[in-house]
Design a binder for these strands. Structure first.
Length: 214
DNA sequence: GTGTGGATTATCT
DNA sequence: GATAATCCACACC
């Protein structure tokens, strides 16, 4: 009943990033902010496979102040800042010392939409942002849920301010795999089908117009 | 509807 | 000094 009870356990996260990326689809990400729940259903994820993965920040085992959370225990957040203006949120997978993670790319907003809108706000002309624009991208969802570097390393297990809940995922036949977005520099790793979406979902991030199966 | 380029700065070489 | 796991606006079809 309590938030802490609803949160998924450490065991859930102690899996390889591909399995975890698929298992997270359909679950609900919850962010407590000023006593209010901001929540959304996870509809799009990407797996980052650690030291061998050219598209990952941990490629080659390069450990820095920025990415050190990736080496932590499963079920912790890795939040980084990029492009001079955006935050993106990952969930650390697998075992400690294995720097793999799952990037959360899109949510279907479920609770606290007005607060999300106030965080995203400022639509040109003053018009309200549509629901589908609130969390349909990795930097959009962090902005909507007020996730920044202060949550880097936060534990998603045992309650607190950030966690994932939901007893059921999405069956395999409801999941589409495509190449990851924005990693064209990663040679053969850019091609790998490591992005996972709930098939045909309207809250997916928009850009991959050419991705197969959507 | 699609395509292109600018914004803006922490982080790393 | 260059780059980036992106987003948004605007041009053009």
């Amino acid at each position: 009943m309590t938030a802490a009870t609803a949160a998924l356990s450490r065991r859930f996260y102690r899996r390889d990033p591909v399995t975890l990326a698929k298992a997270l689809l359909g679950r609900t990400l919850v962010r407590m902010l000023d006593g209010q729940r901001l929540a959304g259903r996870i509809v799009e994820t990407e797996a980052y496979l650690g030291e061998a993965d050219k598209a990952a920040h941990t490629y080659g085992g390069r450990r820095t102040a920025r990415n050190r959370s990736m080496w932590g225990e499963a079920g912790h957040a890795y939040v980084y800042f990029t492009y001079g203006m955006h935050y993106c949120m990952n969930i650390v997978a697998d075992r400690a010392e294995t720097p793999t993670a799952v990037l959360l790319r899109a949510l279907e907003p479920a609770e606290g939409l007005d607060v999300m809108r106030s965080h995203r706000g400022r639509c040109r002309g003053g018009g309200a942002l549509r629901d589908v624009d609130l969390c349909s991208g990795p930097a959009k969802l962090t902005q909507a849920l007020a996730v920044d570097r202060s949550l880097d390393g936060a534990d998603l297990v045992g309650g607190g301010v950030l966690w994932v809940e939901g007893r059921r995922g999405v069956p395999a036949q409801g999941i589409v795999a495509t190449p990851r977005i924005g990693v064209g520099y990663a040679d053969e790793w850019a091609e790998q089908p490591l992005r996972f979406c709930i098939a045909g979902h309207r809250h997916l991030s928009a850009r991959p117009a050419r991705a197969a199966g959507l």
